[in-house]
């Protein structure tokens, strides 16, 4: 059941990203998604298997839940959040997508813990939210770099 819910959320978020108007180009979305995915795979492996701070499920369906969360949802949420941040004009408006992003991370982690995709023997939700916040910050910095590096050279590419 947990895997079904998570896959449905994945489908919904991907559909929103693909169909809704967005400020990020295709290249920017892909760049942010892949780099955050790379970082998150390393971070989750180190926290889970090297340091033992996160206990990852040993059952196939819940392990797949963890894989979907780690590999799709975690990199996708900052991309969606940045799209919304770029639409917002005032500081107050910009706080809403950030708050929404943290609430979404909190909700999805609660769902994963509820279905025992992973548990926190030596970690907690606050630390996870700090990690999620760091990903958002990294995504903002990466986007700035990408636009700085390629704005002049490749204007008009999709």
């Amino acid at each position: 059941m947990g895997l079904t819910i998570l896959l449905t959320i994945c489908w919904l978020l991907l559909t929103i990203l693909i169909t809704y108007p967005k400020k990020l180009s295709r290249r920017e979305c892909v760049f942010l998604f892949l780099v955050i995915l790379d970082i998150n795979i390393s971070v989750s492996w180190i926290l889970g298997y090297e340091l033992g701070k996160i206990e990852i499920s040993k059952q196939t369906s819940t392990y797949l839940m963890y894989v979907v969360y780690r590999s799709v949802l975690v990199p996708l949420l900052p991309v969606l959040c940045i799209n919304l941040l770029l639409v917002c004009r005032t500081f107050l408006q910009k706080t809403l997508p950030v708050a929404g992003y943290l609430v979404a991370v909190w909700g999805l982690e609660t769902l994963c813990i509820r279905y025992k995709a992973f548990t926190f023997p030596d970690f907690n939700m606050l630390k996870e939210l700090v990690v999620a916040g760091s990903y958002l910050l990294i995504a903002v910095l990466l986007l700035k770099w990408f636009r700085y590096a390629f704005a002049k050279e490749e204007v008009g590419l999709p």
Binding site: R27, V30, F31, L37, D38, I41, F146, F150, E154
Partner: peptide, 19 residues
């Protein structure tokens, strides 16, 4: 290929085996 395409293809090929 454009530089950004080269970069994205390299990141893609970095990420898939890692995944």
């Amino acid at each position: 290929l454009p530089t950004s395409t080269t970069l994205l293809l390299c990141i893609w090929a970095f990420t898939t085996p890692k995944f």
